[in-house]
Computed example of a mutant assay.
Amino acid sequence: MENINIFNILKYEMDNLLYNHILNQNINLIKNFINDDLIEKLESLVRNKKFTAKELYNEVYDNIKVLGPMPENFLQYLYEYTLSKSFPNAVTIKLYDDYSLVCEIFLLLFSILNRIQKYYDDNSWQGRFPLIFLNEDEIDSEMRTEYSRFLKAFNK
Rank of each mutant, 00 (worst) to 15 (best):
N3P: 01
D15F: 10
L134C: 06
G68R: 08
S86Y: 14
P130K: 01
Q25S: 13
L75M: 07
Y61L: 12
L17E: 03
F154G: 05
M1N: 11
P71I: 10
M14E: 10
N35P: 08
E2T: 09
F133S: 09
R115C: 02
F129P: 00
K50W: 00
L23Y: 05
A53L: 08
G68S: 09
L107S: 10
R144I: 10
D62N: 15
F106W: 11
I139E: 03
R47I: 15
F87D: 11
K31M: 04
F87E: 11
N16Y: 03
Y57H: 12
F154N: 11
M14S: 09
N89F: 15
Y81T: 04
L42S: 02
A53R: 15
K85G: 13
E55H: 09
L29Q: 14
N123A: 06
D121V: 08
P130S: 04
Y19H: 13
I30H: 06
S86Q: 14
I112N: 02
L75A: 08
E13C: 01
K152I: 09
G127I: 00
L10G: 05
C103H: 09
L134D: 05
L151A: 00
V46F: 01
N114I: 03
L10T: 05
P71M: 07
A90T: 07
A153V: 07
L75K: 06
T145G: 07
K50L: 05
G68A: 10
R47M: 10
I64C: 03
N20L: 03
P71A: 08
F7C: 01
N24T: 12
N16K: 12
F51A: 02
D62H: 14
L45Y: 01
E59M: 14
K65C: 10
E40L: 06
I116G: 01
N28I: 04
Y119R: 14
D121P: 02
Y77D: 07
L18H: 06
N24S: 10
Y77M: 09
E40V: 00
M14D: 01
Y99I: 06
N26V: 11
V60Q: 06
M70Y: 12
